[in-house]
Design a protein around this nucleic acid. Sequence first.
DNA 1: AGATATTTGTTCGTATGTATT
DNA 2: TAATACATACGAACAAATATC
Lengths: 256, 256
Amino acid sequence: MTTGNTPLVVTPPKRRKRSDMLAARIRDLISQRGLSPGDRIPQEWLAEEEMKASKGTVREAMKALETQGLIKTRTGPGGGAFVTALSGEQAMDLLSNLFLFNQPGIADIYALRKLLEPELAASLAGKLDEQGSAALQATIRLYENEPKTAEEEFRQRIAELDFHSVLASLAENQLLGFVCVFLQTLLRDLTECRAIYAEPNPQLRETALNYQVRTIRLLKAGDAEGARRLMREHMEDAERYMLERARIRSQASRES
Amino acid sequence: MTTGNTPLVVTPPKRRKRSDMLAARIRDLISQRGLSPGDRIPQEWLAEEEMKASKGTVREAMKALETQGLIKTRTGPGGGAFVTALSGEQAMDLLSNLFLFNQPGIADIYALRKLLEPELAASLAGKLDEQGSAALQATIRLYENEPKTAEEEFRQRIAELDFHSVLASLAENQLLGFVCVFLQTLLRDLTECRAIYAEPNPQLRETALNYQVRTIRLLKAGDAEGARRLMREHMEDAERYMLERARIRSQASRES
DNA sequence: AGATATTTGTTCGTATGTATT
DNA sequence: TAATACATACGAACAAATATC
């Protein structure tokens, strides 16, 4: 009996470019030799004889590692390629390309935010130090008074997201914080949302402000369950509002 | 009254490299001209005269865009640089660098999985078509019989995660699916976990198998609430198990 | 199947810019 | 200021891949 066995992955017979192989090799060297952020990459590794590739090719490989956020280069004596830890911001930039073409919907984003933001808030109950508390208060102060211009209005809406961003940065669970910031970034960059944010929403500022002041109070009081519930309410409110506005907008555009 | 307005970002006086500026310019061109995945990037844009840079420099810029997953290049007639949509896998690879140095803990990852995986399962109730059902069954079949070697054991543990990965790929909410796969990848690549996976765990295979068969049954029956509860149970179980093993391992290593 | 044209990929020598001493 | 050590940029020639005839 001949096996009709169709292997899922026979072998990747991919003809990879030299520069890609170099990049992979250097990355492996970094982790194998246990190089840490700040360490300099030995020149020997990049020597043309060692890598059996010319300068240009090696440069391309380094460029790849650089855009991956793994290294940074400095000119001058004592310069060279240095290992760096990929920053959260840079990671966010790289991720933004993923949803450049097929953007998720508002409901998709809030489906996650409704689950994660309440947990984030709860995890912070009773953990607010002076510094964190001050940072939160600072973001609120940005929109304490009514906006005068449309642009100011827009900036306030963005600042509202910043409140959540500061909250995320305080999380002990860095992963949770990262994903929350990711969702906020996604929301902010949605064309659908930018249009909504640009419109005037008189009552929204007040309710958001109200939520945030109450949130801080609960966190200081160490009431995890209360903070969780409040944040969930906030998320549900925000989603309802955004979806409603999006509906109105799409209706209006259909009539034009 | 003079405004004590301190601009948040004065101006980035960054001395950027030519290749980086080129990359940014090309990326802007792509979005401005509304190029979509599959479209070819006009050679004129990359002509040395147009960009006022040499071939090597534009190559470096293209390399940056390529590692960002924005373009792919093909050789030969009709070849060139083509716009592509960043794939989920590639995005995962880029993200993996973020946690290369300060890895999150098992508890951090499961804190998120406990929230998201149940929601993912619930969202799939009654939505399983023939294809999806078949894909799930296929992953289960991989570890139907007991492993003979340690390596086979390891592969089975990975396949167990694949079940969740297939589940995520079926999600209507792509964002939810993406984050779930991200967490799974993170878990799989954790050195702490790889060590645990490498050990024999006779009874674990059976309980995992059990969970998954029941999950499929609930999804087919369209029981969203049941699927959610079962998955939450599964996650809590898995976390308990992993944490316990990690504790034992760290204890053992302290004694050696 | 094989020759050819087109386009990317690689090499090398050299020159320029930049930060340290 | 000058010398030094390193990254960055240039340009021409060459090699490899691939669609078309």
